[in-house]
Design a protein around this nucleic acid. Structure first.
Length: 571
RNA sequence: GCGCCUGUAGCUCAGCUGGAUAGAGCAACGGACUUCUAAUCCGUAGGCCGCAGGUUCGAAUCCUGCCAGGCGCGCCA
């Protein structure tokens, strides 16, 4: 792998910095970081290294900058380097100095921006994990899209990512689900039932009831005792819901490497083993928890419980692992689950949760520390809530009333690309107002069309070239140094920054950066397009511009594919 | 009361872990299609970066305290 021009410049400066510090007692050598200045007059790259160095050398920053420039040996492509402001070094490159990058992009094609995964830790990425009691709603959709894109971005940067979905197919909710289905089954048989508030009201329950009745005889269930009936119906209903959820996920282009069932943890005895282990380790004691703060609890009865000493590992209060009826809490199963991930060889886990689970992070991390010694694991990304609106008017969503809007409905209305791209245009920390009309709009209000249009536009030019009988020159025969216009320069810089952007996105778990980047890249292209006609008489310049367009299309396509969004060649 | 997240242009959001004159899109106003896709581009206007302190050469960014909004806070998942 050859060093980029940026790397060469950085290296040249770093060498001088080390030389200057040779006579000084310094604990550590500050590292040179090249930045892209916002102002064009500040050159192509800027370095602030003179500022931190000034303190160590006890000179003023501008003097330091002068010493650096006196010694440094820049590569040929550097035209000039000047000192500016309090001590910045601004580096200007020769026109077209970096334009060779577009050849690399085309040679690497879909691999541009990616690195191989030869030596990296395995990462377990758990996301969505929507309860199998109903269809996915838009909030789940955001987590799903973010998680899948993050997986793609991290894979592109060499991480070995395993995508996992945790199915909460145990607990009281499954009993509620089974009972709801049973009531609907009876109703379908013409039996008069009353549907209690505690049951799930959605129409999908009726569909499930029908599905179950299709191959099975009603009498078969009627004859069973209630416990085994609810158990069997629970299993069937979970399977039906998971089939629906998987189809919803597929609709937005998401598939998992593994679906992990909570029930198997209980059945295999892993949960009880975990509790026994904690008992043996002396991490469990009998105690009474204080009443919850902040909200009135009616009929609060303090009770004695066996409590896990999570406070010893950073939690706020100790947590119960067993309910009063002797069954395990959700928390107990969840730490058994994370311990299982650890046993499967994952030292690194990332969980993507909804914001309403934020209070849960410390206790899981505390438990994992107690069990495995791992610190800050799992790494939890909280995705803030989604508010669905139409023309700015909020939807009233209530699962109870059956008026929540499913992800599937939204995808059908606005399309997969719009859903996926729009969810990626904001940081996960900010709440999302998702407007259905805006997401459907095919104009500048909707960023997905803006970027797709850029891609389609490039292909329109390429098609035009083809119909005019223009042959594309071989990549290495093109003189890219002819690309000297401001717009071309800006576009090339955007294309160059793609790998760095991806690396940052992967390291910081911020896949939204990819979306922001594509929008900027598309803007740089549209701007170039308007000022620089591609198909023209000047053959050499035309070939250079065609090459620039092809590499731009390649990067847009690469980036969009990480987000699971299509790159159409015509619109 | 406590914990987490958020507060940047009229609206929706960026701001690359401390850099130079805080940026986009929408909305407003004014321009650009006989020429490769106007789903586009160019320009104008619009800012006590929630408030107040602190850290330092330098703060939207880091720290502290307030204010406002969202989420959460016993054996629900």
């Amino acid at each position: 792998m050859t060093l980029s021009l940026k790397d060469l410049i950085t290296q040249a400066l770093q060498d001088v910095v080390s030389a200057l510090l040779a006579d000084v007692e310094a604990n550590k050598t500050p590292s040179v970081i090249l930045t892209r200045p916002k102002q064009k007059e500040h050159g192509d790259y800027a370095v602030n290294i003179a500022m931190p160095l000034a303190g160590l050398l006890k000179q003023n920053p501008r003097q330091v900058a002068e010493s650096i420039l006196a010694k440094v040996q820049f590569p040929d492509a550097v035209e000039s380097a000047d000192i500016a402001g309090p001590g910045f070094i601004n580096i200007k490159l020769k026109a077209g100095g970096e334009s060779d990058i577009i050849k690399d992009i085309l040679n690497q094609a879909e691999a541009y921006g990616c690195v191989d995964n030869s030596n990296s830790d395995r990462v377990n990425l758990e996301f969505v994990s929507a309860n199998p009691t109903g269809p996915m709603h838009v909030g789940h959709g955001r987590g799903a899209v973010v998680g899948d894109s993050l997986a793609n971005v991290m894979k592109a940067r060499g991480y070995d990512v395993h995508k996992e979905y945790y199915i909460n197919d145990a607990g009281t909710q499954i009993g509620v689900l089974a009972n709801s289905v049973w009531l609907r089954m009876q109703e379908l048989q013409g039996i008069d039932i009353t549907f209690p508030d505690s049951a799930y009201p959605g129409d999908y329950i009726i569909e499930i009831a029908k599905e179950i009745l299709e191959p099975n005889n009603f009498a078969h269930f009627e004859a069973m005792d209630e416990t085994s009936r609810l158990k069997e119906l629970g299993t069937l209903a979970v399977a039906a819901n998971m089939a629906m959820i998987r189809s919803d996920l597929k609709q937005v282009g998401i598939e998992f490497d593994q679906y992990f069932s909570e029930k198997t943890l209980h059945e295999s005895g892993k949960v009880t083993q975990l509790i026994e282990k904690l008992e043996t380790d002396g991490l469990i004691y009998t105690g009474t928890l204080p009443p919850p703060k902040g909200k009135e609890v009616k009929n609060y009865n303090p009770i004695e419980q066996r409590l896990f000493r999570t406070t010893d590992f950073g939690d706020d209060v100790d947590r119960p692992l067993m309910k009063q009826d002797g069954t395990a809490t959700y928390f107990a199963a969840d730490i058994a689950y994370h311990a299982d991930k650890f046993e499967r060889g994952f030292k690194h886990m990332i969980d993507i949760w909804g914001a309403d689970h934020g209070g849960y992070i410390t206790r899981v991390q505390a438990a994992m520390k107690a069990l495995t010694g791992l610190d800050k694991q799992p790494e939890v990304l909280l995705v803030q809530m989604v508010n669905l609106t139409r023309d700015g008017v909020p939807f009233k969503m209530s699962k109870r009333a059956g008026t929540f809007v499913t992800l599937s409905e939204v995808v059908e209305e606005v399309g997969k690309d719009a859903v996926r791209f729009n969810f990626m245009t904001r940081r996960i920390e900010s709440q999302f107002d998702f407007d259905l009309e805006a997401a459907k709009a095919k104009d500048a209000e909707n960023p997905v069309y803006y970027v797709q249009y850029a891609h389609a536009r490039i292909h329109a030019v390429l098609r035009k070239a083809e119909t005019e009988g223009i042959a594309l020159a071989a990549i290495n025969d093109v003189d890219t140094s002819l690309l000297v216009s401001d717009e071309a320069n800006k576009l090339i810089k955007m294309l160059m920054s793609y790998p760095d952007m991806l690396q940052t996105a992967a390291e910081r778990r911020e896949p939204y950066r990819v979306a922001t980047y594509i929008m900027q890249l598309a803007a740089a292209f549209h701007s170039f397009y308007h000022k620089n006609r591609v198909i023209m008489d000047d053959e050499a310049l035309m070939q250079a511009r065609l090459l620039l367009l092809r590499s731009t299309a390649q990067v847009i396509k690469n980036a969009l594919s990480l987000l699971g969004v299509s790159a159409p060649e015509a619109m």
